[in-house]
Write a protein that binds this DNA or RNA. Structure first.
Lengths: 133, 133
DNA sequence: GCATATAGGTGTCTAATGCACATATGGACA
DNA sequence: TGTCCATATGTGCATTAGACACCTATATGC
């Protein structure tokens, strides 16, 4: 548990609870991506801050493959170390669709949350002596 | 990790990673709430489905108190078992404000995610033979 | 030779939390 | 009286995610 998301964070270091839908979308956008590239592109879409652990990405991708959401193949072409390229399966696309539906609902809840927050916070500010920020 | 949020969920049962801001807002809306009531009201604002474990709520509230985000007092008035009433402290309000800021950013990321999803999904549907739904 | 960027991992420990279970009060009802 | 249910608050255990440290390998620049 965290005091607040971007706080000095007392003990916890929990990161992306929502890596899965991000990786699935990035694969939909560019099928055949490899882990290192996905880890870099995931930062822009990360719901929990711009930090994305590459090791978490690799593990997630292996889990995807075990569950049949992606298949992979080695790519030894080009310079540098070999890349393992990942490709979405039909099941992967289906999973992504379910994730997207859930995230739409989440956005609805988020809107309700923020609306209620805006309704409730002014009184609290007044009642406690108008703290700044 | 989950295949998808509302899937038959193979192994995991992870619930609300975002209980904290919900409870803080509910306390702002009705200061002096008790855990059982918060658990019921939290279902409407839960980002991960309508299930909210009361035990998680109680544990979260005790953690809040330990961290100084709330203070509590026993209420033996009225019928039934005693309630422990919780009151936000200034630190609790501050934490809520930080959470709200983070959730605003999250909604921005969510918007980008859903926009990119809508851009990318039609091609995938066409390329794979227009699956239904 | 050595650092750095790219690329892909494993091992381990901690924190979150779902589930089962324990406790107590008071009302309904037979 | 006894039993059941709703309210109300918790604890203990086992599973799980994930942060961090660490390891390997290739190619390029200095």
């Amino acid at each position: 548990m965290e005091l607040a998301p971007t706080f000095p964070s007392p003990t916890s270091r929990r990161q992306s609870t929502v890596l899965e839908p991000v990786l699935l979308l990035l694969l939909l956008e560019k099928n055949g991506s490899h882990g290192y590239d996905l880890a870099n592109r995931a930062r822009r879409l990360s719901l929990t801050g711009p930090e994305v652990e590459p090791s978490s990405v690799y593990r997630c991708l292996r889990w995807f493959e075990k569950e049949g959401l992606v298949r992979s193949e080695w790519d030894n072409e080009g310079p540098g170390a070999s890349r393992r390229r990942y490709f979405l399966t039909d099941l992967g696309v289906k999973s992504l669709r379910l994730w997207a539906d859930a995230l739409k609902r989440q956005r609805g809840v988020l809107d309700e949350y923020l609306g209620r927050y805006r309704m409730a916070i002014p009184q609290a500010m007044a009642g406690r002596g108008k703290q700044s920020t």
